[in-house]
Each structure stands twice: as C-alpha cells, then as structure tokens.
Nucleic acid binder design. Structure first.
Lengths: 136, 136
DNA sequence: TTTACTGCAAACGCTTTGCACCCAC
DNA sequence: GTGGGTGCAAAGCGTTTGCAGTAAA
C-alpha cells in the first residue's frame, strides 16, 4: 500500500488501475516486470484495464522516483521498485533470467569507460546481456 | 573494392545496390553508419535504391563476417567494417558522437560482470551511452 | 463542478517480411 | 532460362500520442 499512498501524498488521484498496478509491483517481492507482464496480471483483476494505462502509471511512478526502469536490446523494458542503492542488471538472452549487478561493480565499469573516453558520465539505464549457466 | 570482391568470391551476385553500399562503407574511413545514413548516401548515387535493400545488404555483409553492428538504446543500430580486434562503442546521447572502447577495457568489464554472476558469457553487441565533454 | 485520468485507436521509429517482377549469372 | 535480388507495401514490436468520455476530488 506504500506506492499508492505516495501517489496520494503527491496530490495525484487514486484510481483502480493505479491501485492494481501498485499492488502487483509491491506484492511480488521487488521483482522485475515488463509492462506487458504487469498488464496481464492487472487484467486478471480488472479485465478492462488498458496497456496504455499501465505505461502511464509506470511513468507516473517513475516521475515520483518510486520505481526505475531499464532497457534491454531487442526486448521490452523492465520496471522495478527503486532500491536504496542503484544497481544494474544482467539478463540471459535465452531464458530471460535477470540478475542484479551491484553498485560497486557498476561504478568500476563506469570508471573504466570514463578513463578511456572524454565522457563526463555514463548512462547505466540499460541491461547487460549474455547467457546464464543453465542456457546453451 | 574489397567488400564487393568478397561477395563475389562467396558466389553471391554483384548488383548495383550492393556495389553502392560497399563503396560507401569502404570509402569513408571505417566510420559507423546507421542504415538510414547509408540509405541517404546510396540514394545520391542511384535514387531508386530502397532502404530494405540496404538492410539486406548489411545483413549479407554481416553473414560474411565483413561488417558488424551494434545496438543503441532508443536509437537505430550502427554498422561498421569489422576490425581485426573486436571493440565496443560509447555514444553521446546528446550529439551522437561515437567513440571506440578498446578490447582490453571491454574484457575487463566482461570479467567484472562474469565474476558477479553465474553467467557464461557477456554480449558486447550494444553501445554504451553517456554524455561527452562538449555536451551539457 | 472540474480536470485528471481513462480506454480505444492510431501513430511512432526501426526493422523485417511477403510478394511479384527483373536481371546477373 | 532460372532463382537470387530487387522495390514496394505492409506488418512487426514496444511504446507513445490524440481524443472524447468518465469519474475522483
């Protein structure tokens, strides 16, 4: 119920689609979801909910700094509740498993890239990919 | 003329669109191109050439191991002549500048990711992004 | 009452596919 | 002559936008 309360506190309206999406995000133990996955779960609660609304709710939650999303190559984005420590992901191209890469490792990677370029910052807003042990 | 000769050597047909695309790729000093950029340049040589054909020519060249491509988040892919040493890219989100990241750095990054996961390999088939010094 | 939010449909950008025609071999 | 390659049109995918109706405040 935390997410929806924060929406309320921001003066935004409480609606059924928003409640449903927030519930799913919170009750699933901080997993990563695609918009499509959330949409399918939401439709089981109320079949009239629309994918567009899921996207808009996710946008809102992200604006309020409550969730984050990450991009994957040739796959849809993943959304997840914001952790205190920023982290990035590594996703298996075969089975889709997503593992977290901790902040320290990510900082080291950024350092390597910054050292080799004239860049000021690195965008960690994407998901690394490869193959996990189980696959191939 | 190297690329087109290799196409011929593989028993593939030499056509005007293929010649044009190969010429552009070779005569521009190993730059990185989007399919759209190649398409625009190709149309200046023969205006009847189609984007689809550019994509198909790029696919062919990649199958023959003569070029590579890399993905970018929210942007089109970039294609470039294959270097002896595999490298990856870092692209500025503002101005689009693409800089090469050398193999050694990439290997270090892969090592960091592999150490922290149960993954067997990392896909380096994408482009890192951030902001270069000139921008923002 | 008011306007934020919704569902629906349509457009988006990049890339791929289907298909009939054509030309390199 | 034959089928590999082409241009064109249309579809694909994930996401966004426009719009008129609806309901939260």
């Amino acid at each position: 119920m935390e997410l929806i309360n924060k929406i309320k506190k921001e003066g935004k309206r409480i609606t059924e689609p928003r409640e449903i999406v927030c519930n799913i995000l919170e009750k699933s133990g901080h997993k990563h979801f695609t918009a499509e996955e959330l949409f399918k779960k939401a439709k089981k609660v109320n079949s009239s909910i629309d994918l567009t609304t899921v996207y808009r709710t996710l946008d809102l939650l992200e604006e309020l700094n409550l969730i984050e999303h990450s991009h994957r190559i040739h796959q849809s984005g993943i959304y997840f509740i914001k952790h205190t420590k920023h982290h990035v992901h590594l996703s298996c191209e075969s089975c889709g498993e997503i593992v977290n890469i901790n902040q320290k490792t990510q900082k080291q990677i950024e350092k390597l890239l910054l050292n080799e370029s004239n860049f000021k910052n690195i965008n960690s807003h994407f998901t690394y990919s490869g193959h996990c042990n189980k696959c191939k």
